[in-house]
Simulated scan of single mutants.
Amino acid sequence: MPVSAEEFRQGMRRLGGAVNIVTAADGDVWAGLTATAVTSLSAEPPRLLACINRQGGTYDIVSRGRTLAVNVLGSAHKDLAMRFAGLSGEPETERFSDGDWETAVTGAPLLRDALVGFDCRVESILDAGSHAIVIGNIEAVRSLSDQVAAPLCYMDGKWATLAPLG
């Protein structure tokens, strides 16, 4: 018997993940969303992938503008993560009114105080049902290496962070 969508969702809730804001630009139009489905793909050449819902405005901007930035969030960014997840009530067009944003080399928005920001040009977009797998060639990496901050994580419907075990 196949796994139901609800069984799948409940199982995936137990898979904790780093919280990121994935952003894109098409000219002067910016878009972004909160995502945990982001991972490295290869070191040579430097690439990452992000899974993006095809129903949202961010997917349209990624498709047209062919830019992508992944902003890895620290625990202090919980409210910003909620805003970009659509959980704080602001319309999608107002998401960038909070946070300190700059324009990356590709034109995509980078959060100045993100733990790390990956600026990418879109290599390819693969259809994966309700989502798209976006593969980005990393053009620049901006890291807050002089600051130690706890990463923002999400698991089982709750915000969390990590601490060293020993």
Results as ranks from 00 to 15, higher is better:
Ala128Lys: 06
Leu165Cys: 11
Cys153Arg: 02
Val3Lys: 05
Glu6Asp: 12
Val70Ile: 15
Trp101Phe: 09
Phe8Asp: 06
Val141Trp: 08
Leu152Gln: 07
Gly11Trp: 14
Leu126Thr: 13
Ser145Val: 13
Leu68Cys: 02
Thr103Gln: 14
Ala132Gln: 10
Ile61Ser: 08
Gly74Ala: 09
Leu110His: 10
Asp98Phe: 09
Asp100Ala: 14
Ala149Trp: 10
Val116Lys: 04
Ala150Arg: 02
Phe8Val: 02
Pro109Thr: 10
Pro109Met: 11
Met82Glu: 02
Arg54Thr: 12
Ala163Asn: 01
Leu115Gly: 00
Ala163Gln: 06
Thr103Trp: 09
Arg121Cys: 01
Arg95Ile: 08
Leu144Asp: 09
Met82Phe: 00
Asp98Trp: 12
Ser42Ala: 15
Arg14Asp: 07
Val141Tyr: 12
Ser88Ile: 05
Asp113Tyr: 04
Ala104Gly: 07
Glu7Thr: 14
Arg47Tyr: 10
Met82Cys: 03
Phe8Ala: 11
Met82Lys: 04
Asp79Glu: 01
Leu80Ser: 00
Gly17His: 02
Thr34Phe: 14
Ser75His: 03
Thr39Phe: 12
Gly166Pro: 11
Gly117Ala: 15
Thr36Pro: 02
Asp146Leu: 03
Thr106Arg: 07
Val122Phe: 07
Val72Phe: 06
Thr39Lys: 00
Ile138Val: 15
Gly89His: 01
Ala132Ile: 12
Ser145Cys: 09
Gly11Pro: 06
Asn53Val: 12
Glu94Cys: 06
Ala140Pro: 09
Ala132His: 14
Gly99Cys: 05
Ser130Tyr: 11
Asp156Asn: 10
Asp26Cys: 03
Asp146Arg: 13
Arg66Phe: 11
Phe96Asn: 08
Ser97Asn: 15
Asp98Glu: 15
Gly16Cys: 05
Leu73Glu: 00
Val116Asp: 02
Arg9Asp: 00
Trp30Gln: 08
Pro109Ala: 01
Ala69Ser: 13
Glu90Met: 01
Val19Gln: 00
Val72Cys: 06
Thr36Val: 10
Thr67Glu: 10
Ser124Val: 12
Pro164Asp: 00
Leu49Gln: 04
Thr103Cys: 13
Ala108Ile: 04
Gly157Asn: 05
Pro151Gly: 07
Lys78His: 00
Gly27Thr: 02
Asn53Arg: 15
Cys120Val: 07
Leu144Ala: 13
Trp30Ala: 13
Asp119Pro: 04
Leu165Gly: 13
Thr106Ala: 08
His77Val: 02
Ile21Cys: 03
Gly27Leu: 06
Trp159Leu: 00
Val116Phe: 03
Glu90Phe: 06
Val105Gln: 14
Glu6Lys: 07
Glu7Leu: 11
Ala69Phe: 10
Ala149Tyr: 11
Gly11Lys: 09
Ala18Leu: 15
Tyr59Gln: 02
Gly86Val: 05
Phe8Pro: 01
Arg83His: 11
Ala31Glu: 11
Ile135Lys: 10
